[in-house]
Structure formats: structure tokens, C-alpha cells
Write a protein that binds this DNA or RNA. Structure first.
Lengths: 157, 157
DNA sequence: TATTGTTATACTCTATAACTATA
DNA sequence: TATAGTTATAGAGTATAACAATA
């Protein structure tokens, strides 16, 4: 358990991270904002999946997921296939054009990091990744709890 | 210098951090969204300062800073004093009510982290803070470069 | 009845550009 | 002319609520 002043400092650092994320967003292709990029990247990493699963991985509400998915589908980067097991559901899958975009994104991201993190060792980056993963894990699923009052009124996160 | 796959993973982790930040935002008082909280927290930490300095610390455009500052000033949490040395400028300073709000924010933030990071040691948190600070430092000031074409057309960040 | 997904609405944060006042 | 700050406008991301279709 850490001290209160440390928590305050951690909050400041997390807040300041917005600048890094906006920097990352600024190098994206015009038609592919960060929400779309996240969808494509997750589909590439985890393979085809349903909306609800994607919403979980994105850690946003399904309504938000729906809009991001519509955006990338309109551009032909994914297809929405019927789910044979549940006709309410849709299976999301990258198209070849989507895969191309994923490659483009990876290229731009790597360039960006290479420019700015040139003096970080492989190990440094690995440690940062590990700590961020642990942080996310500790917070669990921080999305709002829809219509669920079984917990306290103020969300746990 | 790290590998491209590591950079892709780092980008994913940073993107996923949005969930943690939204969780943090959800516990804020209704009248004090995260932009306002950042202003108050920075004034508390660094003492009174001018708009331009605050914009730098927030790492956002001054127009954004101006709106956040107006919001907290309307609620009486800061005062905007004339700068004796430059009449274009304004000095921002926390009021007693602003200090109270800072305390309230620190309390809520600490509660939140204590709930979720209970199994992190003081050292763990310290390491995370240090790495985030280094990350931010490596990226430098990632704000858009206004009307400055002395660099390449694509921003460095 | 409950769940999957979509759409409408509203709010926060951000950047760009045009503007005022002062240096 | 250049700089400090404000305001108007637009775009991205998100959540809530109401809704349709299916389980």
C-alpha cells in the first residue's frame, strides 16, 4: 500500500499522458482515427470476434464500439458476418484491406516511437509495458456498470 | 532501441489506459471535470503562474487552457490577478475554496487508488511513476506546432 | 424476460482560426 | 510586428437511454 502523496503524483502522471496519446493520434491516417485504429489492431491481435467481446477488449460501452465498428466497416476494413449460433450477433473479421491498414498503422507507430524512444533499451520498453499491463489489470473492467446497483452507488473505479 | 512488435504492444497498452483514466474521471465531483481538476492540481503543486506556463504544464493549446481556467474561475476556485510586469498577462492563483477542492480531489483519488492498487507496494508505485515521467519526457512537448513549418510537415510526435 | 446490437442525444476534451489588447 | 489571452467553431471520444430483433 502506497502513500497518499504518491497516489496524487500517479494521478498527475496519468493525466499528463494525454499528450503522448494525442501525439500518437496525430500521425494516424486521416480516415483512421484512434478509435478505428484500436478496433483494427485488436481484431488483428485476437482474431475475429463478436461486438460484445470487442467492447470488452476496448473497455468502452458497446454503443461506442458499435460506432467505431460501423466506421471501419464503411471503409471496407472489416466485414460483419452473421453468427450461425446466435442470429442477434455479428462476427467481425478483418478484410485484406483492413490488414493493409493494420500494417500501415504498425509502421507509423514504430516510426514514431523510434524517433522519440531511441534511447530506451528493449528492456526499458518491456518493463513499461509490463507495468502498464499490471495497472490495467489492477483496475479491472472500469466501464460503468449499466443498471447494476448490486454494488455501491459510486462505481468501484 | 526496441523491436517493432514491442512498439505495437506499447501503443496498445497506452490506448487501453483510457479505461483507467475514465475510471478516475468518474469519481470526480460533478462541477469539477478532469480538465478543471488538472488546473487546480497543477496550481497547487507549482504555485501561482501565468496562462502560458499552465498551458505548457497541461501540454494542451492555450485556447483549451483558457476554457478550463474560465470554468474554475467562475466557481471561485482560482482568481486571475493582473500581472504588474505585463498587462496582457494574468496571474492565476488558488483561492481558499480552491484549496478545499484540491484536498477533496486528493482524498477521492487516494481512495480510488487504495481500492484498486491495494496490493502494489510503495516501490511498485514509485517505479510506475518514474517510468511514466520518463516516457513523457522522451516525447517532449507533443502539442501541435502552431504555424511552425521549420520542422517537417508531419509533426515529430 | 433477458440479451445483442444500433441509434439519438448530450457532454468533455481538443485544435484551428479569427480576434482584442498590449509589448 | 509579435505575443498573451479569449472566443467561435468543428471534430473525436464517451456514456445514457430508448429501441429493435432474437434468445
Amino acid at each position: 500500500m502506497a502513500a497518499q502523496s504518491q497516489y496524487a503524483e500517479l494521478a498527475r502522471q496519468l493525466s499528463a499522458l494525454g499528450a503522448v496519446k494525442r501525439g500518437l493520434a496525430r500521425i494516424l491516417p486521416g480516415e483512421c482515427p484512434s478509435g478505428s485504429a484500436a478496433v483494427l489492431t485488436l481484431l488483428d491481435r485476437h482474431g475475429e470476434m463478436r461486438m460484445s467481446r470487442l467492447a470488452e477488449l476496448l473497455a468502452v460501452d458497446m454503443s461506442v464500439t458499435s460506432r467505431h465498428v460501423a466506421h471501419v466497416a464503411e471503409r471496407g476494413w472489416i466485414e460483419r458476418l452473421p453468427d450461425p449460433g446466435d442470429r442477434r450477433s455479428r462476427i467481425l473479421r478483418l478484410t485484406p484491406a483492413g490488414l493493409d491498414m493494420v500494417d500501415e498503422l504498425a509502421q507509423r507507430t514504430a516510426d514514431m516511437f523510434a524517433r522519440n524512444l531511441g534511447d530506451w533499451s528493449d528492456d526499458d520498453v518491456g518493463q513499461l509495458i509490463a507495468m502498464l499491463a499490471r495497472l490495467r489489470d489492477s483496475f479491472g473492467d472500469c466501464r460503468a456498470r449499466h443498471h447494476d446497483e448490486s454494488y455501491s452507488r459510486t462505481p468501484v473505479c
